[in-house]
Amino acid sequence: MSLLLLAISAALVNNVVLSQFLGLCPFLGVSKKINTSVGMSGAVIVVITAASAICSAIYHFILAPLNLTYLNTIVFILVIASLVQFMEMFIKKSNPALYQSLGVFLPLITTNCAVLGVALSNVQKNYDIWTSTINGFGTALGFALAILLLASIRERNEDNDVPKSFKGMPHVLLTAGLMSIAFFGWAGVL
C-alpha cells in the first residue's frame, strides 16, 4: 500500500517535469504532436524503470559495500548510457516495428536528466531496490502524463492569436506554468 502511495506521489504530487524540472528538453522538444509524444512516453517509462532498478542494485551491491559512494554520478551516467545503447540494439534486432515507434527516441533519453535525477534521488532518499523501481516507474508515469497533456494542449492552441513576442517558446512555457499550477492541486490529495 505504501508503495502504491509512493508511485502516486511520484507521478502526481512531485511531478518530475512540472515540479522538479527534470527532463524539460524532451518535454518541450517532442510535444508538438500527440503521436510522437506517445512514443517518447513509452521509451521514457521503459528506460527510467530499468535504470532505477539497475542503478539501485549497483549502489546496494557494489558501491555501498566498497565505500565508493562518491563515484555515484560517474557510475550512474555510464550505466544509463550503456543501458540505453543495449536496449536500442536489442529492440532493433528483436522487434523492428517497436523500434520504429519507440526506439528512435532512445538516443534522446541518454541526456535526459530525469533518468539520472531519479537514480540519484533514489540513493539520496535511501530507497531499497524494490522501492527505487516503483519510484522510477511512478516518476516515468508522471512524465508521460505531463508530456501527453502538453502535446494535446499544444495541438489545440498552436495557431491561437497570441502577441508576436509570445509566439513559440514563451507560449509553451506559459502553458506549462498553468499546468504546473493545476498539478499543485494534487498536493492536497496525499
Binding site: 513576442s165 509570445f166 509566439k167 517558446m169 499543485f184
Partner: peptide
C-alpha cells in the same frame, strides 16, 4: 518562487528577448 513561477517568469523573459531580437 514556487514551480509555476519559474515557467511564467522565464516565459516573460524570453518574450522580452524576442521583442529585443525583433
Amino acid at each position: 518562487i514556487l514551480a509555476p513561477g519559474a515557467f511564467i517568469v522565464l516565459a516573460f523573459v524570453i518574450a522580452t528577448m524576442n521583442k529585443i531580437k525583433e
